[in-house]
Design a protein around this nucleic acid. Structure first.
Lengths: 225, 225
DNA sequence: AACGAAATATGACCAAAATCATAATTCGCC
DNA sequence: GGCGAATTATGATTTTGGTCATATTTCGTT
């Protein structure tokens, strides 16, 4: 079992603001777990009794809508904290988390960390900052959903993934998503997402390397109206 | 100038978690202001150097989209705190706030309150809870925008206003919005909002008392597919 | 290698909503 | 009370995107 106080992953999230003592205590009660691609980490309606620190891998946060479709509201990657809202709220989760690739995560029980949240102002301020940032992102998504076309939303999704999560050595997007995932991010039918991506390919904006997508013309994607 | 420590409005927001001493200090540096209907409280891109506590009135938070339309992301009412994200983030505002009716607000400078956020864990935990709640709401809005029809979103908006902000003695919705505001909440063209509301009226789901809307058949609105 | 299931692709058609145009109504203001 | 501007209303038309049907391809499993 690795030690939190020596783990470099925490540099990417609010846990960096914990003291060495706090980290050692957390380290002693955390659970490391491996999660397979496709596994449900937690489900809508479930009580989440702690926070997941993502050491490796990527997962999607989605919400089932009345018509039976999943809407992906966020992609969470290595370094991020998952389920941190459960620390503050006693409500059950409104989201489902599913691994997009194999993951390694550490689970920190709520009981252990909630105390730190209430006694370490630096830590709680950091969490506050993180939430404020997420709220701002959510505002942007709402506006995009409401006012932009499927083409635009899909182009922006590609750009977002490119800019936020980077590319592989062959320049393909580091995050591999199915057409259905793309559809569930932009909030459209799977067929529509397929059609738009095909068009982007025809237009030379993107290319496919196996199942992976490579952006060929970033500026062109940005100009999509 | 009224005193924060005696003000009952704070019961409705996180300020209730401040100590009497903290409240007295804040009271001495706050500014009371009257805001007229239609006034811009703050604009997108502005630095907000504090928090507004709403004593009276209602305002909308919106974001301008690329196509020139405003998207309303939240309605903020008496008792709420406005601009509290500025306490945690040094970024400029991503939203515009415009009064929907005349308002009375107290402005608390960021400098004065940020210290309390970092030293009073009860207060910061309260703010965290508030943000977590707002994030959950934002998730719901994203899913609605992505997956529901204009008819459904408009019906749900009416229900939301009814349930969250209440009704006048004559049973009309306490919040009076223009057709354009409705359009900007559900993310549609003004004409579409007008059409759908007209249809709701024809179907006996709502009625108009002057410019005010009265819900005649709440269950019917809930059944809109 | 062969099979079946899942993912991707494409066409045809339809429904929802945007856009454009034009009235009708309301409201502030002189 | 009347004028002009803003708001609300409604019709005609077009565009976007959803749905349904059906291939085609990919991939894991035996």
């Amino acid at each position: 079992m690795s030690k939190c106080e020596q783990c470099i992953i925490k540099q990417f999230n609010s846990l960096k603001s914990l003291t060495k003592d706090e980290l050692m205590r957390i380290s002693s009660c955390k659970t490391s777990m491996n999660i397979k691609k496709g596994d449900v980490i937690f489900d809508e309606g479930e009580t989440i009794n702690g926070v997941y620190c993502i050491k490796e891998g990527i997962c999607k946060l989605s919400k089932l809508s009345a018509n039976g479709k999943d809407q992906i509201v966020k992609i969470v990657v290595k370094g991020d904290l998952l389920g941190y809202r459960s620390m503050v709220s006693d409500e059950v989760s409104n989201l489902q988390a599913v691994a997009l690739i194999d993951m390694k995560v550490c689970f920190i029980p709520k009981n252990e960390i909630i105390n730190d949240l209430q006694t370490n102002p630096k830590f709680s301020f950091d969490v506050l900052k993180e939430m404020a940032h997420n709220l701002r992102e959510a505002d942007d998504i709402i506006v995009n959903m409401a006012q932009k076309s499927v083409r635009q939303r899909l182009a922006e999704t590609l750009i977002y993934i490119h800019d936020s999560f980077g590319v592989n050595p062959d320049k393909t997007l580091s995050i591999l998503l199915s057409r259905e995932d793309f559809a569930n991010i932009v909030g459209t039918a799977t067929e529509s997402a397929i059609r738009v991506l095909s068009q982007f390919k025809k237009d030379g904006l993107i290319s496919m390397v196996g199942k992976k997508i490579r952006i060929e013309n970033l500026e062109g994607l940005k100009r999509i109206e």
